[in-house]
């Protein structure tokens, strides 16, 4: 029920309230940035992952505001499952027009996976064939930071990381998201 409602909401916002840009512009801009990071950090891919995550985090901190304004849902999600639905069917929908599949819940409902059937950031991309990028670089790692940043602003501390990527030759692109805790009070959170 909640899922269908979220899907409808996402669809409606995407259609009526979102400015669109050319998909290739997004793909190429992001791609150029990742390639430049790889160059700047001399192919230290672990560091590149970290930087992408950090950028994403800073985006997420602001993006949540835009998300709330556009989707106009000031109602809190009742549980983490609800949150997952909103992330996939509203969040990803209105900003990228994709709805990653939610799966693999743990029994305590605190961990789930998002499977990206399509990933606009990764069109055309082939990872460098230096023998390390395939094992070390998470090309779309910015997504993890975005979710972490955005959810932190709505009192949820989460941890997100990719566990597989079609760019590496895996069958799916899968991100694992775990709820660490709800942040109760408004104390400033110490940033890493």
């Amino acid at each position: 029920m909640a899922s269908a409602k979220a899907a409808r909401l996402g669809e409606e916002v995407w259609k009526s309230r979102v400015d669109k840009v050319n998909a290739e512009l997004v793909t190429l801009t992001y791609g150029t940035m990742v390639a430049q990071l790889c160059k700047d950090y001399e192919s230290d891919y672990l560091e590149v992952n970290k930087q992408l995550d950090k950028m994403g985090y800073n985006i997420g901190l602001r993006l949540i505001e835009d998300y709330l304004a556009k989707s106009n849902t000031m109602k809190r999600c009742v549980n983490f499952k609800d949150t997952a639905e909103m992330i996939s069917k509203v969040g990803f929908k209105i900003f990228l027009n994709i709805t990653p599949t939610i799966t693999s819940w743990t029994s305590d409902n605190k961990q789930f996976s998002l499977i990206f059937e399509e990933n606009p950031l990764a069109d055309f991309v082939e990872l460098p064939d230096d023998g390390r990028a395939q094992d070390e670089l998470w090309y779309s790692n910015m997504f993890c930071g975005v979710l972490r940043g955005a959810l932190e602003m709505v009192q949820m501390q989460v941890e997100a990381h990719f566990i597989s990527d079609v760019l590496r030759g895996n069958d799916t692109t899968e991100m694992r998201i775990s709820l660490i805790r709800y942040i109760d009070d408004e104390m400033p959170v110490d940033d890493d």
Binding site: L28, T32, F124, V125, P128
Partner: peptide
């Protein structure tokens, strides 16, 4: 076109992509 749209490809670089 698809091959050279990859962000890790530079102009006049040898096309090594197996795909």
């Amino acid at each position: 076109i698809k091959a050279i749209m990859s962000p890790f490809y530079h102009v006049n670089m040898e096309a090594r992509s197996p795909i």
